[in-house]
Structure formats: structure tokens, C-alpha cells
Design a protein around this nucleic acid. Structure first.
Lengths: 345, 345
DNA sequence: TTGTATGCGTTATCAA
DNA sequence: TTGATAACGCATACAA
């Protein structure tokens, strides 16, 4: 039995004035008698009047809400992105509808469809492929759209990314600097981020005059609970003389560290390991894990900022930006050897 | 320049029929001529017509949306809750507006206020205190409300919780079973969950005929990045003869394990350690950490289920349920001693 | 200073 | 079988 919320009409009736006057009084309009204004405000307070959000939206044609399609909410990086998005939204008076897609194309499509019905003023989206058609429809409807984390070049939108290739390059270069010569690459899945990180890896290896060895490059298909890629990293570690590993996620790097203990290889002495993302576990694990910072919070803030700016300035911007959030290598114990010092951040 | 989305009126004009007929045709009403129906459907498809969500909401007085006030989105447990909530919502045709409150009372209050304007059909809320007044207003407005994780007894609502006292009891009892006699308790903050877990701890200790020793009970105020409570657990470990520790979070338990290495105490041989929540890190860390499962996903599913049921059956239910999601002790290396065996889950 | 009428997009009711 | 009209709650242009 839903009790009907009080409306300006109810207030007007009780005061024998029209709804418009109530509306104006509540908006503190200068055209309204201060006596009646006072009465209205008092009554509104008494009944704890709240304007109906849906009516406001219908009339203003804006919902003050954005949609966020995010691959995973149980994830340190994406969680940070979401927190950044929400922080900026909150300070701009916006709300977020969150659609965790769990990397399922069907969920992505149904999310995009839901957002095409005018329930949000804009969309934040991590592009995972397979949804091109629906994204196109979104853009055709002129619904502001900003990509984060991954983007499709073919769409004219703002993008907020990290430079994955550069990050992969820097991580690999760091391994080379601490003396690694036979460096393995282990990636979680063959998505675009990991492909770019692999390109960076290849560039760094080539620049160092080392031949790229395909048997050192592994994509793990491990979809187990923790996705540590234990089996695949074991295989990688069996390559003779391997003395460095770049893993595209911290979890995979930890999987490597675990396997190292089993086969009695010492890290960092025998083999240096670097991960990716700077998750809590990289700080906590022993040995602590060198990694590449992936600033999710900043990415979320920036993406929300660009989106809301675009919502507020609806004339189609001619200059779509690709914002690259800076990353950096964080050196910890797992690569602390040679003339390098471990920072225990 | 926001392109106006197409409406049933537009379609009607083009076909020289009224909006009502279009509406009926789209609803596949049997009262409409199959010829015109066909035309309408075709045109709607051609223009990719989507009914305006806001108008639908205003007219039906329901938004098919729920609000979720959640303390933290960068958090394995709450992330799982959110995933569960979203999964159930998705399969019931609902969307979620997420308000991460970051434990900030102001954010909680502004979230609740935002939800009082009719933009959601119901609210999911983890009660953190200090917002009693606003929650009361929510209830007075007959907005369906379900508590998860923590609840305030004074409100008549459904609740989805774990039995924290029992969980604390079982964790401590497990330590006793593996031979611990002088057991420390370390909790992250003095919130209601931790207080209940402490009660369980006390009960188990007392039942074992051990006197409760206040110096063995510590609440850490560590608000550092990782909240491992390193300093406080160090203090606790300095108590002579301590041979078991129950930490109310896995992160704190890991902090204990780290400190043990420093002072050359062996786990589980010299001291047994059990955490709480069954986070990924408890499986990954070495030694692997015994812990108490805290089923966030199930909690989210159940909470969303109760809320949406209540939304669909608006007559005020007389029997508010308190659903306790079952928990269990997960035994790993950190307590594997005596006649116990480590399960490496 | 206030009231009336209109529109936002849709469905439902009533009339034709 | 279809159309006109009201209603959802609000803001605003126009009339008084």
C-alpha cells in the first residue's frame, strides 16, 4: 500500500492557492508574495515535500543520471574506476546506474539497450568488442558516450585510457635494466590491452638486441577462481635459462612467484618478476611484487568529467580527446637486484 | 544538439493515425487492425523506436530501479554483494543506482535523500549508524527497504545478514580445537559486526574454560592504505605465550602472518591464525590462511530478492524476515596442525 | 502577485 | 477498429 507522496497540488489545495504559485514559492521566485511564500515553505517542510524526480526528468528531458557499463565489479581496478566515476558524479549532482557485464556480450548488449530509452544522459563504457552495432545506435541517438580502459578507434568519442604499449615497454625495459635477458611474457587473455602490452614487451626486447622467442610468450586460458595462471606459468618457467617475467596482471605474477618457490628458483636473484596494476596483493605478498601502476581512480574521475562536460555542452564537440592517464613502474622486491633498490611502498 | 528521439506521435503522424493506435499496435493489442499494426511495427523498426523510459515511469509510478547504498566498492565482499544484487535485478528487469558511501555519513545521508524523490522503487542499505533519522523518513514514505550486512533492530524491515557472533564463535573454537590456549583477537574497527564477532570469540574462549584476558583483545585504528594493522598486531604478538589469533578481516590476518615472519614465530606450528571473509588473498598468501566464508554474492542475491518481492507486493508485510546466510570455517595451512589437515581450496 | 493553460511521452478510459 | 482526452507531477509562458 504505497502511500502517495505529497505534491505541489496538495500543498496548493490546503493553502487555497494554485500549484504554480507553490512551484514558484518553492523556487524562491521573487514574484511571489512573501507571506504566501512563507506559508508554502512551512507546509512543504511540515509534509517533508520532495519534488518528484521522474516528473522533473520528463519535463527537463534530462535524468541527471549516467550509465556505467563495467566488465567486473569484484575487481580492484574496475572498483577504483567506479569509485572515481561516482565521486565525480556525486560532486556534479549526477547518479550512476551500474551495469556489471561480467564480460558477457549479452549483458553488454542488454545494458546498452536499456540505456537507449532515455533513462540516462550519457554512458561510460569499457569497450570489449562484439557490441559495435549497438554502440553505433547509441551514438546515432546522440547519447554522449565516453570509453574508458579500452576503446574502439572507429567511434568518434572521448577516450580515457592508459598507454598499454608504453606500460608494457617500461615494465619489460625495467626487467632488462635489472639484468634479465631471457624474458617471458604471460597474459591473461588475448584482449586488446594485453596485445598492446605485448607490443611494448616486444619493442623493449628488440631494442635490447634480444631476439623475440615465441615460446616465451604465453596467453593463459586459466579461468579458475583466482586466475593465477598457475599451470601456464609453470610451463613458461620450464623454459631453460629464463630469468625474467612480465605478467599482465598482478595475480598472474603472484602465480609465477608461487611456482618459483616450488621449483626452488629465487626471486629476484635467479629471476625477476614484474606484474601489472599495483593491486593490494602486490604490496602484501612476499616477496613484494614490482608492478606497473594502473590508476583506476584517476581514470574514473577523468572519464566522468569528460562525459558530464559533454552532456552539459551538447553541441557535438569536434575535437574528441584521447586522455592517457600516466603510469609508472613501481619497483619492489621481486625485481630488486643489481644496482636497483627496493622501494617498499 | 540533442537529436529528439522518435515518439509514438511521430510515427502516428507519418501514418496518419493517432498516437493511441500506435501505442496499442506496439503493445500487440488484439483490437488493432493487422494491416495498420504491421505498418506501425515496420516504421517503429525503421526508426528504431524506443519508448521513453521516463514517461513510462511517470505514468506507471514505478521506475524499475532500486538504490544501493554500499560502504565501499573497492572491496571484495561488498563487490560480491553488488554483483549478487545486480544479477538478481537483471533477471527481474530492474536496474541499480549505486551510491558508494565510503563510510561517510554525509554521503549516506545525501544518498538516502536522493532516493526519497521517487527515483527508485526500493532501497538496499548497509546500516552504518548515524542515519537513523533519514532511514525513518524513508520508511515513513513507504519506500521498501532491506538491510544487508548490518541492520538496526529498531526498524521494521527485512534483513539479510550473517550470524557474526556464531561466525566468531566458530573461528575461535576452531583455534581451540587445533590446540591454541592463549588466543588474541584483532578487529579492524569497533563496528557492530566486529563487536558480535568478539562476543563469539568470548563465548568460545569461556566455554573452553579459559579466562578472558583484555590485553589479548585489540581494535586496530590502522587506516593505512592496506589496513593490515601491522603495528597493532605486532603489539598483540608481543604478549607472552600467545598461540592463536583470530582476526576479523583477512587483511589483518595477513598482517599478523607478516609480523610472525619478522619475529621468527612459525605458523601454524607456534601460533595458529584465522582470518575472516575468505578473500582471494587468503587462498594466495603463503602460508595459506584459514578463514571464515562470508558469502557476499548470496547475500546480494537474497537481499535483492526480498526487496523486489516487497516492491511487487506493496501491502506492508507483517512478517519481516531476518535471513542469516550460512557461513563456515575454511581450514587452510595457517591452522593446519594437530589432527587437522589443510584443505587447499 | 497569482492563476490558467500547455507540454514532456506514455497508457488507459471513454466515446465513436 | 480507431480517436480524443485525461492523467502522471512539474515548470513555465501567458493571461489576468
Amino acid at each position: 500500500m504505497k502511500k502517495k507522496p505529497i505534491t505541489i497540488l496538495d500543498i496548493g489545495e490546503e493553502l487555497n492557492i494554485s500549484a504554480s504559485t507553490v512551484s514558484r514559492a518553492l523556487a524562491d521566485s521573487s514574484l511571489v508574495n512573501s507571506e504566501t511564500k512563507k506559508k508554502v515553505v512551512e507546509l512543504a517542510k511540515k509534509y517533508n515535500y520532495q519534488p518528484n524526480f521522474t516528473a522533473l526528468s520528463l519535463q527537463s528531458n534530462s535524468t541527471k543520471t549516467i550509465g556505467v557499463l563495467i566488465p567486473n565489479v569484484v575487481h580492484e581496478f574496475f572498483g577504483l574506476v567506479l569509485r572515481g566515476v561516482e565521486d565525480h558524479c556525486h560532486s556534479s549532482g549526477y547518479s550512476c546506474i551500474v551495469y556489471p557485464t561480467n564480460e558477457d556480450p549479452d549483458r553488454e548488449i542488454s545494458g546498452i539497450k536499456a540505456l537507449m530509452t532515455g533513462r540516462v544522459d550519457g554512458v561510460l563504457l569499457s569497450f570489449r568488442g562484439k557490441t559495435n552495432l549497438h554502440i553505433k545506435q547509441l551514438i546515432e541517438r546522440n547519447i554522449p558516450l565516453v570509453f574508458f580502459d579500452t576503446a574502439d578507434e572507429s567511434f568518434a568519442t572521448h577516450r580515457v585510457l592508459i598507454d598499454d604499449k608504453k606500460a608494457g615497454y617500461l615494465a619489460t625495459k625495467h626487467l632488462i635494466e635489472v639484468g634479465s635477458k631471457k624474458i617471458g611474457f604471460i597474459g591473461g587473455s588475448e584482449n586488446i590491452n594485453n596485445q598492446l602490452r605485448l607490443e611494448g614487451y616486444k619493442q623493449a626486447v628488440s631494442e635490447a638486441g634480444i631476439t623475440i622467442d615465441p615460446q616465451l610468450i604465453v596467453y593463459s586460458l586459466d579461468k579458475s577462481q583466482d586466475e593465477m595462471g598457475l599451470e601456464d606459468s609453470e610451463k613458461l618457467l620450464s623454459v631453460k635459462g629464463i630469468d625474467g617475467i612480465f605478467a599482465t596482471t598482478d595475480m598472474f605474477a603472484v602465480g609465477v612467484l608461487k611456482n618459483l618457490k616450488k621449483i626452488n628458483l629465487k626471486c629476484p636473484e635467479d629471476i625477476a618478476v614484474i606484474g601489472f596494476s599495483n593491486w593490494a596483493i602486490s604490496r602484501v605478498y612476499e616477496p613484494s611484487l614490482s608492478t606497473v601502476e594502473q590508476p583506476g581512480y584517476e581514470m574514473g574521475i577523468k572519464a566522468a568529467e569528460l562525459l558530464i562536460d559533454q552532456i552539459k555542452n551538447p553541441e557535438t564537440p569536434s575535437d574528441f580527446k584521447t586522455v592517457l592517464i600516466p603510469t609508472e613502474v613501481i619497483v619492489r622486491t621481486s625485481t630488486a637486484r643489481g644496482n636497483n633498490v627496493a622501494h617498499s611502498t
